[in-house]
Amino acid sequence: MHELSITKQIVAICEDFAGKHSASKVTKINLVVGEATGYIAESIRFYFDILAKDSICKDAKITLETVKPLLLCTSCQQYFERVPFSFDCPLCGGQGEPTEIGREFYVKSIEIEE
């Protein structure tokens, strides 16, 4: 997985927004992560501690809000969680199609000290 490059982006985004708001410190970073992205919270935190060491984000707390991936049934139009090795709808057996739900990966907000 590529938590290193992803965590670099997280730090860069937070530094930008902190700068824009003339913050002296970022105390908290709130992330939204879809489970389909496969990112591991522990590894993000691990890299974060190293990468943020010399930045305004040092010692910020990271919170992760996770989102379960959902498929949309093309027959009954219901959203459902897939079972392994199938994309079929558990309700009607119809074919499921991918949706954006569960693929989120963004910095929702940060908490700063001015």
């Binding site: 992803i6 982006q9 997280i10 860069a12 985004i13 937070c14 927004f17 902190a18 708001h21 913050a23 105390t27 908290k28 990966f105 963004y106 910095v107 929702k108 907000s109 940060i110 908490e111 700063i112 000290e113 001015e114």
Partner: peptide
């Protein structure tokens, strides 16, 4: 110390894209 919440809503992939 005053804590302010700042809305970001920036996608992690945005800069790459």
């Amino acid at each position: 110390m005053e804590h302010t919440e700042v809305t970001v809503m920036e996608d992690i992939f945005e800069r790459n894209d």
